[in-house]
Amino acid sequence: MQKAKMSSAFAAPRIYNAPLTSSLTAEQRKQLCGLLGNLELTLLYKASVHGYQASAFHQQCDNQGPTLLVAYNRSGYIFGGYTSVDYAQSGQQIIDDHAFLFSVHDGSTLLDHQVSAEEKPWRNVLWTAEQRAQLMKMIRNYNPPVMFMSQVRILMIGPVGAGKSSFFNSINSIFMGRITSKAMSGSAGTSLTTQFHTYAVKDGRQGKPLPFVLCDTMGLEEQSGAGLDIEDISSILQGHVPDRYEFNPTVPYYPDEQNMSRHASLEEKIHCVVYVIDATKISLMSDKLQEKLASIRRKVNSLRIPQMVLMTKVDEACPLVQKDLQNIYLSSYIKSKVQEVSSRLGVPLSCVLPVKNYSQELELELNCDVLLLTALQQMLNFADDYLDDVDHM
């Protein structure tokens, strides 16, 4: 914990039994000081010295004025946040217009509020009502390339709170012409989705079902015995798990004798897998969670099912995008996050699509729709690739 000396009225020096030194390099310390206006920093708290308990943190850092928090993970990332308001245990909500988050890696600093814009977009998007209408028409008119199939099945997998259920709600909203909230979504610490749930989307309130089904799952958690089990995912991929099946994180799905004796039809299987990742938490992804995702990817690869990544909450990750969603492919920060996701999950850059789900909006928004529909169209393209491959086997 680094305290920024914003004036001469800073806390008196503290005396410790062991030397208290920061793990930041001189260059990283210089960068962080520069971001705060070339101020000096005084070390208040170090977890390895004072302890990792919340009480130890508050004992050292409460009521100390403007404070900079610096943390590290095993992948070599340095990240944290700044607040100009005192830390305290008041139990009340505190608003700080000057607060920001940052991350540092390989000597470079990426600050959420100092993101640079590229001269040319690194992907081309038509931000027009005509493009939205064209995408909606293509999705409505999509036909799976296998006779007698009317819908493809797209499986959404991701950590708790990444936005799987919100993506369905957003797509449903676009075709309903208003904001909807059919799937349970939110920001709880544990998964709000406890069932395997298949969601069909209608083309308007009285319209026919559209040619895809979005399959929602329980959120992934890094702890063993919590969140979605990898064995459950294997059963889902192969079409064995029924709709509304209630997940049990400690016991994987096991079909009864009747279901074990039959082979799932092609219609019941998954035709495209989509990993939903929160753009604000990519650098914070734990080794255990990354290992879980790698295990899932190996299983999906063995079944030759196409995979892509939906990178959500891009507006929360980058103020440039929050200001105007059309800046998404001008943001060097979002580009770096796409590259990071590609590297961490082992998927091509072209398979990582940044989007913004509807969360707090009361009305539909053109730019948001274009991004969401573009992602959905790509999912249908990938499902096509899988079915074409199956059809020729």
Rank of each mutant, 00 (worst) to 15 (best):
M1A: 09
K5L: 05
S7C: 04
F10A: 11
S22V: 07
S23N: 10
S23W: 11
L35Y: 15
L44D: 07
V49M: 05
A71G: 11
A71M: 12
N73W: 00
F79G: 03
G91M: 12
G91W: 10
Q92K: 15
I95N: 13
L101A: 10
E118I: 02
P121L: 06
N124G: 09
R140Y: 01
V146K: 12
M147Y: 11
G158K: 15
V160P: 03
A162K: 04
G163T: 10
S170W: 06
F175V: 04
R178N: 03
I179P: 05
I179H: 13
S187F: 11
A188C: 03
S191W: 09
A200L: 08
D203N: 15
R205Q: 05
Q206N: 15
V213C: 10
D216R: 15
G227L: 06
I236Y: 14
H240Y: 12
F247D: 09
P249F: 11
T250H: 13
Q258P: 00
M260S: 08
L266A: 09
E267M: 14
E268L: 11
D287N: 09
K299S: 06
Q307S: 12
M308V: 03
V309P: 01
T312D: 00
N327K: 08
L330H: 15
S332W: 07
S336W: 08
K337I: 05
K337W: 02
R344N: 09
P348I: 00
C351E: 10
N357L: 02
N357S: 03
L366I: 04
Q377D: 06
Q378T: 08
N381C: 10
M393I: 02
